[in-house]
Structures are given as C-alpha cells and as structure tokens.
Design a binder for these strands. Structure first.
Length: 290
DNA sequence: TCCCAGGCCTCGG
DNA sequence: CCGAGGCATGGG
C-alpha cells in the first residue's frame, strides 16, 4: 500500500527523526519503521518505508484491521494530509524560519495517534530530560508486556487506560516516576477509561481555546502538556508549547541571544506565526539537532 | 556544587 | 494575578 502526501514529504527526515528518539513503541532499522498498534480494538504490525510517491506500508501481522484503517492511521501518524507547501510559502516570508526550513524540505511532524500514549507522554515528559522520559515510558509499557512477536522480534503495544489507572503509586515510584506524576497518570487514565476524556470528544470541540481550557482543567495538564497534545494528536496548527525548553534553546540560537528568552518573548514571537505556529515549532526544534 | 532537562501545583502576597 | 518553592532524577 502506497500513501501519497498532500504536498512535499521526504520519508528520510521522518526516519532520521524517529531514529533519534528512544521510543519503545516502534523500531527503526534498515530504512524501515516497524510499529505494533491496536486499531479499532484489533492488533496489527506493519512496516513503513520510503517510496518515490510518498510512503509504502507493508502489513506483517493482522488480527483483522482493514487496509483503510491502517492507511488512515499512517496518514494521521505522519501528518500526511497537511498542506505543507502552505507552511513553506509562509516560512519563506519569515527571516527566522526561512533558513530553518531550508534543507528540511518534506519534513513533517510525527504525530501521536493514541490519546493514551499522548497523555502518558505529556506527563512523563514534564521537566526531565527527553532521554530519561523515554526510559520512564519504556518501564511503564514493558511492565504490562503487551506485545506482538514477529520474526524473532518483540514489538510493544500500549497498555489500556484502565490498566494504567489501576497502577499503584508505589509501582510507578518503583519505576522512578515521581509521586505527583504517578498521581496525574492514574487520574488521567481513569478519566480516559471512563470516557470523560476521549479522542472523539476532544476532536469535537469547536475552538482551540475551548479544548485548551478543557485539557488544562485536569490536574497535571498545564499549558505545555495541553499544547503538545493539541499539536501531535489533535493537529491544531496554531498550537505552541510556550515555555518548552527546546523552543527556548532554539530561539536563543536562531535569534543569536545572549541568554535564554523570556516567556513573553517566546509568546510574542510564536503568536505572530498564527496557524503556522505548530510547524514553526516543529522546525525550530530541528535547529538543535547537531 | 550548581544548573538545566520537551513543567506543574501549591501557597503567600 | 504573580512569583517562589518543591518535586525526582540524570547529565554536563
């Protein structure tokens, strides 16, 4: 199955980006990204890899997920439906973004389709280094040991929200998750398990402001966490995680600042990007890569 | 030792 | 509404 993008897409950037993460929910090797997932309640394992017309998907194991559902999943995951040229037209007019997008033609945001994963990551990722956050994520997911075995490999699946909400504080503390984060995870996952929070419910909101207010009403979800979810999962093109350490460092570099920029500075500079704020953020993060 | 990591909550003014 | 302090842990 071949999927074309709406505008430019270069799989090698997706591949490089994913290679730099230490995410236990996919494997990267030999030009392929392999992922196990539960779609519509059924397990599936598939590879994605470069194709001249976009990205090729090869299903390796399937409990009955339709091709259409796998296709929609990949489009969502790799953000293939977004009109990236529209962003580029804007970026070329901006002195800060113009050099940043140069050399990254066809780089797209890697999304998080699962809200369970998105909330878990938003909480675990707070304050600590990304590499440590990935260690914590791995510990939580490996604890449940849901996986698909294939060709000698083991491919992990996200646990269900109710499984996560039934974890004890002590179990999470044993994984070196902080006390407060443990509380947040258990609470949020019980909301997802009960349906108070659902992807459809979040997608049904009319405006950015409304869904942001709803998200930050939960303990443990602040502006940064809410905006990471708005970006990667709900695809709000104006979402920017103000206060993010990566944005601070990126702006310090692009704007040649002596010190780390203040929150008002970041807010002012990213707000003017409007509906391009999300992709501006995604590209600014890349200036910190080597 | 101190500061920073893909922050957030609580509390005192 | 705003700023300070605490939280957990690893790395420079």
């Amino acid at each position: 199955m071949i999927i074309a993008a709406n505008g430019p897409f270069d799989f090698s950037f997706t591949y490089d980006y994913m290679s730099r993460q230490d995410d236990c929910l996919y494997d990267v090797s030999d030009g392929r990204i392999r992922k196990a997932e539960i779609i519509n309640g059924k397990r599936v394992l598939f590879d994605i890899y470069r194709n001249d017309d976009g990205v090729e998907v090869e299903v390796l194991m399937n409990d009955g997920v339709s091709d259409r559902a796998v296709r929609d999943y990949v489009i969502d995951w790799l953000d293939l439906s977004y009109d990236l040229d529209d962003f580029y037209r804007f970026a070329k007019t901006d002195t800060r973004l113009s050099p940043v997008v140069d050399g990254l033609y066809g780089f797209r945001m890697v999304g998080k389709v699962s809200i369970v994963e998105a909330f878990l990551w938003a909480i675990l990722g707070q304050q600590i280094t990304k590499s440590f956050a990935y260690v914590l994520k791995r510990r939580v997911i490996e604890y449940f040991n849901h996986h698909i075995n294939y060709d000698g490999g083991k491919y992990y699946l996200m646990p269900a929200p109710r499984e996560l909400s039934h974890l004890s504080i002590d179990t999470l503390r044993g994984m070196q998750v902080s006390n407060r984060k443990a509380e947040y995870i258990i609470d949020i996952m019980s909301h997802i398990g009960e349906g108070t929070i659902s992807k459809d419910g979040l997608l049904a909101y009319e405006s950015y402001d409304e869904v942001l207010d709803f998200l930050v009403s939960f303990r443990g979800i602040g502006p940064w966490s809410a905006n990471t979810i708005l970006m990667r999962t709900l695809k709000y093109r104006n979402a920017v995680p103000i206060g993010d350490a990566g944005i601070k460092n990126a702006l310090m570099k692009t704007d040649d600042l002596e010190a780390r920029p203040s929150k008002p500075y970041i807010e002012r500079e990213t707000l003017k990007y409007g509906s391009y704020g999300m992709y501006a953020t995604v590209y600014l993060w890349e200036v910190l890569v080597q």
